[in-house]
Amino acid sequence: MEKMRYLLCLFIYALKRNSKISINTLFRYVYIYSVSCDYLENSQEKEGEVLIDKNIGIGDYSILFEAMQRLNETEMITMIDSANLMGTNKIYVFVENLLTNERVKHDLNRIIYFVGVISNYSEDVVLSIFYNEPNVVEVTNRNESVVNLKKNKLYELLMEFEKVANEDCGKNLDKYDVFTTWLDYVFEKYVQGKVKNE
């Protein structure tokens, strides 16, 4: 839960100051970040397991919810209504004070870049990204609710795309270009699904 509180603080800091943040969307950002980290950072710290709630469309719901409540109790956030929250001054000061730590600076840098890309998509699109995330698709098809990130299907898909784009098509995509192209692909499929009868 500590880790989740830390993550939530960094995410809230990265999002637009003084504007309301949809709770479910925030939780989805955390899931998508956790599952794409392996690929984006080429990191060795593979996440273990994430529990999915297929109905709301969120991962690790109870842990994140508890973390959010703790932030509310310590007045780092204000709950605007049951669906939205806003960061208070306290959370911005808290995060800024942590920045003397190089590790925190590094984490926040990564999260701001991630948020910079994903916050361009509206809430319904982020929901669609969650549902189309390859690990979620597989787990849903098997009627299960635990995503095991030791065999990360999103990682495999993005690596394959990177290979095709850079080796076969002569492009020069970095990790985030590949990730963004995938986000746009899901966005396009979602919009097509909305207008197919017109």
Binding site: A165, L173, D174, Y176, D177, T181
Partner: peptide, 9 residues
């Protein structure tokens, strides 16, 4: 992949 752009992100 063939239409991807390296400045998109």
């Amino acid at each position: 992949a063939k239409n991807s752009n390296s400045l998109i992100s």
